[in-house]
Write a protein that binds this DNA or RNA. Structure first.
Lengths: 228, 228
DNA sequence: GGTTCTAGAACC
DNA sequence: GGTTCTAGAACC
């Protein structure tokens, strides 16, 4: 069913595209050897006189008579034109001779045809399909992120400074507190001695102090001790 | 000097590319009318029998005898093939007839040739020339920046918390300091009254206090007052 | 998957 | 800018 075209060369096996089976038949056919045939080595084929070939041979196998369409198909299947080095204008006044080749199109190696794959259609792979507009959008985003990072960086620096100043103030306040505590202790010490003196003198007076009040919040900030 | 090819049709004026002057000459030349000539309306031209045309006419004007190269040049200059609707297989068994047209290629309007411009070479505009590899590199950079920003964000949050705790400790310490100051004041007040009492009793003693010492650093942290 | 017209790209 | 080989893309 997948074997259209009356090539009739007994091409079985794998699913070989119609173009390849037709091409094989075309090259093999001795009747058309004056226009299309294997090269002597069997690794390529020649087309002579494109004008006659396209008008007399192509229509028998394809739905057209254009050499360009034939070449397009060859390229689509990975065939490459064989380029010849200039022969310095020898005897032959240049015969109309075009040669094509494909690593899996070899005379006598019919089974290799299965390895010739048609190039995938041009439906883009989506991956690289980026318009200039989309690229600009990405670059714009990057620019925005750059700006945001600079903003954040300066904010971090400001916070760092604020933090350092706070640590200094905390240290200062703690020191101040310790100093005051010393003062308080000395005062109390002094008072005690004074009271003792006064007691000797018979003086009695109530002392309204709240010495324990200021040390009750100490636990709140213990986890802040600098460790860095 | 910029006028090669013996067109000789008296093409003066602007800098018309050689291909266009040659093409004009070719189409005008009555000797080649059986192979290439104006259409009856003069808005396009026909090529008959590509085989003979490419082998007999092209070499006389160009450095090749390939129809494909001729068509490539036509397309390069913006010519378009004129596609004909199928004539339902009338009398003519299809003559080898190809027609091309360009809005500025009009019979008798030679001066219009200057308006036909060769399409710019395929040297990419650099802007959209991005390989998948380069795109991936950019996307990778964006990803890295994203990660960096997340790191910074969490660091900012940590610093913010630390800062808030510090502000709380500063407030606490200030309050503690104020409390202590009250204590100290009360102690001093008490002492003063006590001393006065003692003076009455004839007691004399030197008081070794350093009350001014703890308030001398106050200016260091004045700029930290919270304003938010 | 086949056919057609046009364009890309390398080389000259 | 010209020539050549190959590919893109639309349409069938």
């Amino acid at each position: 069913m997948e074997h259209p075209g009356g090539g009739g060369a007994g091409l079985g096996g794998g699913n070989v595209p119609a173009f390849l089976t037709k091409l094989w038949t075309l090259v093999e056919d001795p009747d058309t050897d004056t226009l299309i045939c294997w090269s002597p080595s069997g690794t390529s084929f020649h087309v002579f006189d494109q004008g006659r070939f396209s008008k007399e041979v192509l229509p028998k196998f394809f739905k057209h008579n254009n050499m360009a369409s034939f070449i397009r198909q060859l390229n689509m299947y990975g065939f490459r034109k064989v380029v010849h080095i200039e022969q310095g204008g020898l005897l032959k006044p240049e015969r109309d001779d075009t040669e094509f080749q494909h690593p899996f199109f070899i005379k006598g190696q019919e089974y290799l045809l299965e390895n010739i794959k048609r190039k995938v259609s041009a439906v883009r792979q989506e991956e690289v399909k980026l318009s200039a507009d989309e690229v600009n959008k990405i670059l714009n985003d990057v620019q925005l992120m750059k700006g945001k990072q600079e903003t954040i960086d300066s904010r971090i620096i400001a916070m760092k400074h604020e933090n350092e100043a706070l640590w200094r103030e905390v240290a200062s306040l703690r020191q101040k507190h310790a100093q005051q505590q010393k003062v308080v202790n000395k005062l109390i010490q002094f008072l005690v001695s004074l009271v003792q003196t006064n007691r000797i003198l018979g003086v009695k007076r109530k002392i309204p102090l709240m010495l324990n009040d200021s040390s009750s919040r100490k636990k709140n900030v213990q986890h802040l001790d600098k460790t860095t």
